[in-house]
Amino acid sequence: MYTLSQRLVFIGLALAGGLLILLMRQFLNDYILSIAGFVGIYVILAVSLNITNGFTGLFSLGHPAFMAIGGYTCAILTFPVQRKGYFLSGLPDWLAGTELSFFPALLIGGLFAALGSLLIGLPVLRLRGHYLAVATLGVIIIVQVLITNMGGITRGPLGLNGLPTLTNLWWVYLWVLITLYLGWKLKFSSFGRSMLAIREDEMAADCLGINLLRTRVQALMVGAFLAGVAGGLWAHLVTAITPKSFSLILAFTIVVMVVVGGSGSITGSLLAAVIFSMLTEAFRPLEESLNVYGIGEIVLSLILILILIYRPIGLFGTSEPGWLSPGKRKSLSGTAGD
């Protein structure tokens, strides 16, 4: 189990992160801060998708759908009462008269996303591999179409805008910590071992008495809950949310982060999320000064293909850096670098 010093390392890292945010908020401009916010949201998304995809080996593309459910729920709950009735004619009165503060709204958003994933997961998770990928891709499109056409509740294609700017770095950081903690706890718990067992050998896991469907659905729900929360954070950082906010491209981006970081490695997802979301921004000055747009995407896809060719298990494989893994010593496991 964890040694005392490892616990201290965790707490120390968390505090260092907090200090970093304090400094960033002091010295950096809005643009960098909003980028930092999205980096954090991507960390939540990548790590939570890793819980679903990486640990259990499910290939789900459904994250954007869960983000949309969570984001819309959260946005409707925090929407100022005085404008709500006018914008959203289809809301029942009690909902039109409710205005929640951010944290409970996020929680409810996450729970709705988890609920959605339960409804979707029970039938769909019987599918395997590619078929699951296709079915979850379908879920994204179905959710998108439904939101677009349920104008009374969602305001249709226009979406909800003018949302209060509630998301700041502290909120994002709080949820990043919760996500990392949850991911860590899960990975090194008996539930986590069940998930990894399913990924590695389904038949054997079944023989050991692991309930396959239940474990899968639970993994999907945990991931969906965090995706829903991320959707809420997203909506209140952009201050607008529309049916097209969360697309297949987003699913792709998150999957890339998980694969590049290493399926099953929390550290890997974390680093990949940070690197990728910053790289996209790094190409901007080049595009703007040369007046050619789209180079960033091309180069990133190229990098991705190269990584897939030369290091298909991702940067970290399934493992975590040795000095953070419970029950291991520094010398026992090397960090998989590049």
């Binding site: 990928a133 091309i298 293909i305």
Partner: peptide, 20 residues
């Protein structure tokens, strides 16, 4: 999964090159 993701990357690359 690797091939699937690579093909998505390829698709994005071709589309952006097309736009460019």
């Amino acid at each position: 999964v690797t091939g699937f993701i690579a093909s998505l990357a390829l698709s994005i690359m071709i589309q952006n090159m097309g736009i460019l």
